[in-house]
């Protein structure tokens, strides 16, 4: 990834993805982190180019898993996400499907209304999503969400999907690819789980540093939803004592917000290493079993 031009005193106000940096952004710490991280990025970039040259199709091998866990270079990110999530295959099997969804007329109005309510409320801190931006990504966002709501009518539009789709558009710069990646996430990677999972994803996107979010998403597309648990557990474990200081619910929520910022999450490379070591082994079998139990308990409460 290219660091944008920086003045020696302060870095750019807007990051490479178009997000405005917060007032209290620690430029010095970021600078220090980035200078070390650039070395990693360069090494990874070389390794990835080699891997992609050898390997026409990306399979979910242990090599790919290892590579993904160490981060996908920005220039390959869209391509790799599409490949490992299966979105590419779905897109190729259904040519023109995305466009046809948007051309149809049926049952759109309510969905359109719900999506429109949130257009101005998606990444207001990102210059590319401003009404005044040229081009303005709000239109692409609207299309992708509308198509998805028509495609998966049982889900329709759920708040939170706007941020996910927004991120996909920023990375792929392509509506149709964003649509199929969204389908991979909501339809397969986070199946039947979209509402609570959205909360976790939103947390990732809104609060964690962008670089870290993308590193998490690299693994999410490749390994599935258990990465979300790994991230959450790592954060909680790291800040256990701090969280326990809370004396009320608002306090707890505040503390959870605070633990998603700072150098611990900004240094994405170290953070991701912790994510895979701190929580220890976490098998999908365990998660599936726990999910089954919780589902039964929730259904019984109704």
């Amino acid at each position: 990834m290219q660091p944008a031009e920086r003045s020696p005193a302060r870095g750019p106000r807007v990051d490479p993805y178009g997000f405005e940096r917060p007032e209290d952004f620690d430029y010095a710490a970021y600078e220090e982190f980035l200078s070390a991280y650039l070395v990693v990025l360069t090494r990874r970039a070389l390794k990835w180019s080699r891997l992609l040259q050898e390997n026409g199709g990306l399979n979910r091998t242990s090599t790919v898993k290892r590579y993904v866990r160490k981060g996908i270079p920005l220039e390959h990110r869209a391509h790799v996400w599409l490949a490992v999530s299966g979105a590419q295959a779905w897109m190729e099997r259904n040519p023109g499907y995305y466009q046809r969804l948007l051309q149809g007329e049926e049952g759109k109005s309510e969905l359109e209304e719900a999506i429109r309510t949130d257009l101005n409320r998606t990444f207001p801190d990102n210059v590319k999503f401003r009404k005044t931006a040229q081009p303005c990504l709000q239109k692409a966002l609207f299309n992708v969400l509308l198509a998805y709501g028509l495609h998966n009518r049982s889900v329709g539009y759920c708040q939170g999907m706007n941020f996910i789709a927004g991120y996909l558009i920023l990375i792929t710069k392509n509506e149709e690819e964003s649509f199929w990646l969204l389908d991979a996430l909501i339809g397969r990677i986070l199946p039947d789980y979209y509402s609570p999972a959205m909360l976790g994803l939103k947390m990732d996107q809104e609060v964690l540093a962008e670089l870290t979010v993308l590193r998490i998403w690299d693994c999410l597309f490749n390994e599935g939803s258990k990465i979300i648990f790994r991230v959450a557990l790592t954060l909680i474990k790291q800040h256990q004592a701090f969280i326990l200081e809370a004396t009320s619910v608002p306090d707890i929520c505040d503390k959870f917000k605070q633990i998603t910022s700072g150098s611990f999450v900004m240094e994405c490379h170290t953070f991701m290493q912790k994510v895979f070591s701190e929580p220890g082994s976490l098998s999908m079998t365990t998660i599936t079993r726990l999910r089954e139990n919780c589902r039964a308990a929730l259904l019984a409460q109704r």
């Binding site: 309510t117 949130d118 409320r121 998606t122 990444f123 207001p124 801190d125 708040q159 939170g160 959205m198 909360l199 939103k202 809104e206 009320s248 608002p250 929520c253 505040d254």
Partner: peptide
């Protein structure tokens, strides 16, 4: 410029009402 709310957000303010101080904890 604001995001839509996901889940719950909090705010609080201490106000004076009828000679009493009341802390409003708003969800």
């Amino acid at each position: 410029d604001s995001n839509h709310t996901i889940g719950v957000e909090f705010g609080s303010r201490v106000v004076n009402v009828g000679g009493k101080t009341v802390k409003l904890q708003i969800w």
